[in-house]
């Protein structure tokens, strides 16, 4: 069973939840309060939703040997544009206006994704540099949109994206679930998954097998932009408002971490969307756990880093191989001699 690629991330997640359960026996309690689900587990899912979204987009990009550093800025831009439009409406609660705001924001994010894809697949700029451009410029754009202010909004329909409920369940969880479900279907039911893995696993072999790697690459950056855009709306709805400086800050790094934990390699090729979701939940649970345990703020980052290091270590085949070999019953003299000979 340890052979299953999600074995380690899932165990780590369960272990963390166990720690929470011990620290706070009511941790697993989920109750219905005025038609809403409440509880720490629900909070983890709700707060983790934006990271799940960004992570899913990033996973496909990484599968093609790329990386998208600009998602944090795209998150900020998306929220900024939507809030700017909403704040100018005479009636923020109008559904029509909200739809327009959402549509504008997502449209812009698609365009930004297309821009990244253009730089990478047409101009052939290395993904890390190509997306660094938008990472830096994007924050500036977001600040221009908000004019350096924090735009607060009151729109009910918009805020529902972040803190609303549908059939007892928070809307943000439903959105993340839907995006995960649709993209998994898309990737595994069509041949997209295989072709992306071939592009990332061995680009030249892919080209000689007749893959249109340029188009595929373009596609994943556009999709990454879209996912970041949705995440941006969610974060803005939750705030509620647009904070160009802080919305989505460092989320690209958390997303990269999430997919790495989930077993997708940064060198491209094989990817696992399910793994990324587990990874994102692990990161979110970690944050929650740190609060639950009452670890002082100053130590939070360190604790997070340690847990992540641990998860990555147990997943590393090289590390496991080492441990396994050490345990192999080699007579002591034999291994000692091996060192001698090699010295």
């Amino acid at each position: 069973m340890t052979k299953h690629r999600l074995f380690w991330p899932v165990s780590a997640l369960l272990a963390l939840l166990l720690v929470d359960l011990i620290a706070k026996p009511s941790f697993f309690k989920v109750e219905v309060r005025d038609g809403h689900l409440y509880g720490s587990l629900i909070d983890i899912l709700r707060l983790g939703a934006p990271l799940i979204l960004v992570g899913i987009g990033m996973t496909l990009v990484v599968a093609t040997r790329g990386i998208d550093l600009s998602v944090g800025s795209v998150v900020a831009i998306s929220g900024a544009l939507a809030c700017l439009h909403l704040s100018g409406l005479p009636d923020q609660d109008a559904v029509g206006g909200t739809v327009v705001a959402v549509g504008m924001a997502l449209g812009l994010c698609l365009a930004l994704g297309a821009w990244n894809g253009f730089l990478v697949s047409v101009l052939g700029i290395q993904p890390i540099i190509a997306t660094l451009i938008l990472m830096v410029a994007g924050r500036g754009i977001a600040q221009l949109i908000t004019d350096g202010q924090i735009i607060t909004i009151t729109s009910g329909p918009f805020r529902a994206l972040g803190s609303g409920y549908l059939f007892l369940v928070p809307v943000s969880i439903l959105i993340a679930l839907a995006v995960f479900g649709l993209s998994s279907l898309l990737v595994r039911k069509s041949a997209l998954g295989l072709l992306l893995e071939a592009v990332g696993g061995n680009p030249e072999a892919g080209r000689l097998s007749g893959l249109r790697s340029g188009r595929l690459t373009w596609l994943v950056y556009v999709f990454g932009g879209l996912c970041a855009g949705i995440a941006g709306l969610m974060i803005a709805a939750n705030t509620p408002g647009a904070d160009a400086n802080h919305a989505g800050l460092w989320i690209e790094l958390d997303a990269i971490l999430a997919l790495t934990i989930g077993g997708t390699k940064l060198t491209g090729g094989r990817f696992s969307l399910g793994g990324t979701v587990i990874g994102a939940l692990l990161i979110q649970t970690l944050t929650t756990t740190v609060y639950t345990l009452g670890i002082p703020d100053t130590a939070t980052l360190l604790v997070k880093a340690l847990v992540v290091l641990l998860v990555c270590l147990v997943q590393s085949p090289a590390f496991r191989d080492r441990v396994r070999r050490r345990r192999r019953p080699v007579p002591a003299t034999e291994s000692a001699r091996a060192v001698e000979v090699s010295a």
């Binding site: 039911k189 069509s190 041949a191 295989l194 072709l195 071939a198 072999a205 892919g206 007749g210 249109r212």
Partner: peptide, 13 residues
């Protein structure tokens, strides 16, 4: 199946 699939494109698995 890679080359055959690539020729068909990703929408026709």
């Amino acid at each position: 199946v890679l080359a055959l699939q690539a020729a068909r494109g990703w929408t026709r698995p």
